[in-house]
Amino acid sequence: MKPEIIDFPKIQDPRGNLTFMQYSSQIPFEIQRTFWTYDVPGGEIRGGHAYHQQEEILIALSGSFDVIITKEDGTTEKFSLNRSYYGLYLPAKTWRHIENFSTNALALHISSKKYFKEDYIRDFEDFKNLFK
Rank of each mutant, 00 (worst) to 15 (best):
I5L: 13
K2C: 01
S80V: 08
L108G: 10
T94A: 00
I98T: 02
V67L: 10
L108A: 11
K78Y: 00
K113A: 02
S111D: 15
K114F: 06
F127I: 11
F124N: 00
R122S: 07
A107M: 14
F65M: 03
D123E: 12
D119H: 06
F101H: 13
F124R: 08
F20P: 00
E77W: 10
R122P: 12
T75V: 08
K114S: 09
L90C: 01
Y120R: 05
N100E: 05
N129M: 09
P91R: 05
F124L: 10
Q12V: 11
Q54V: 07
I69Y: 02
D7F: 02
H49A: 01
Q12L: 11
D39R: 12
G42E: 14
E125R: 06
Q22S: 13
E72S: 12
I68C: 06
T94R: 01
S102K: 04
R83C: 08
S25T: 15
L90E: 02
P14Y: 04
F29N: 07
A60R: 07
S62A: 09
I27K: 04
N129L: 11
N129D: 05
Y115N: 06
I110N: 01
L130C: 04
F20A: 04
E125A: 10
L58K: 04
E56F: 00
Q22N: 08
S25M: 04
D66N: 14
R122E: 09
D7S: 12
G47W: 11
I59F: 02
F101W: 11
E99L: 03
G48W: 03
K114P: 00
Q53R: 00
D13R: 14
I68D: 00
E118Y: 03
E99S: 10
E4W: 00
H49Y: 07
F127M: 05
S64T: 15
N82T: 09
F20D: 01
S24C: 08
E44S: 06
S102Q: 11
K78A: 13
N100W: 04
P41I: 04
N82M: 08
R122K: 11
H97Y: 14
F79C: 07
Y89E: 05
N17G: 12
Q26T: 14
G48P: 10
K128T: 03
D7H: 13
T75A: 06
F101E: 00
T70N: 03
P3Y: 02
I59W: 05
E55R: 06
S24E: 15
I5E: 10
P14H: 07
A60C: 05
L61I: 14
L18K: 01
E125L: 10
Q26V: 02
T103C: 04
E118P: 00
F101C: 08
W36F: 15
S84K: 04
S64N: 12
N17C: 13
F101I: 06
G48T: 02
D126S: 03
K117L: 08
T75S: 10
S80P: 10
K132Q: 09
L18N: 08
G87S: 15
K132S: 10
Y115H: 15
K78S: 10
N82K: 13
T37D: 15
S112H: 01
D13W: 11
P41C: 08
R83V: 12
M21H: 13
H109T: 04
S24H: 09
Y120D: 03
I69V: 11
I110T: 03
T76W: 05
